[in-house]
């Protein structure tokens, strides 16, 4: 399971890096989205990988090794929300740039030939 997760994170992140190096804003934002998905997976996996383990116990004095770590799950939720908000902000900004400059190039102007 670790290998599958590691490979998928690597592929998604790599695709994201390739996309953010492209010159158009749409590619840029797609790249940012892909990278943030990969990062969310990383955060989720950082409390070790568990299957079918409850994260929270109502009774104390139980072996914590039998439970999944709840903290990364809380962190990943926060990261998703923040990533979503900043991406939305960037989209608005892209629309503004497109309207003002008439170009969807990241420099705000078409490259000179």
């Amino acid at each position: 399971m670790e290998l599958v997760l590691a490979i998928s994170v690597g592929v998604v992140f790599g695709a994201g890096i390739w996309l953010i190096l492209r010159p158009r804003t749409f590619q840029l934002i797609t790249g940012l989205l892909l990278m943030s998905y990969a990062v969310n997976l990383v955060i989720f996996a950082m409390g070790r990988l568990w299957v079918d383990k409850p994260p929270i116990t109502p009774t104390p004095a139980i072996d914590p090794a039998q439970f999944a770590d709840p903290l990364p799950q809380g962190l990943v939720l926060t990261a998703i929300v923040i990533g979503f908000a900043t991406t939305a902000l960037y989209l608005v900004m892209m629309i503004g740039a497109r309207g003002l400059s008439g170009s969807d190039h990241v420099d705000g102007e078409e490259p000179r030939e």
């Binding site: 953010i20 804003t25 840029l28 940012l32 990278m35 943030s36 990062v39 990383v42 955060i43 990261a79 923040i82 990533g83 900043t86 991406t87 902000l89 960037y90 900004m93 892209m94 503004g96 740039a97 003002l100 400059s101 990241v106 420099d107 705000g108 102007e109």
Partner: peptide, 19 residues
């Protein structure tokens, strides 16, 4: 806008690296 696009993009990537 031109400067802001780059500023925001760099900082978004930096935030991901932070995470």
């Amino acid at each position: 806008i031109q400067a802001g696009m780059q500023y925001i993009a760099v900082n978004l990537v930096a935030s991901l690296v932070f995470l």
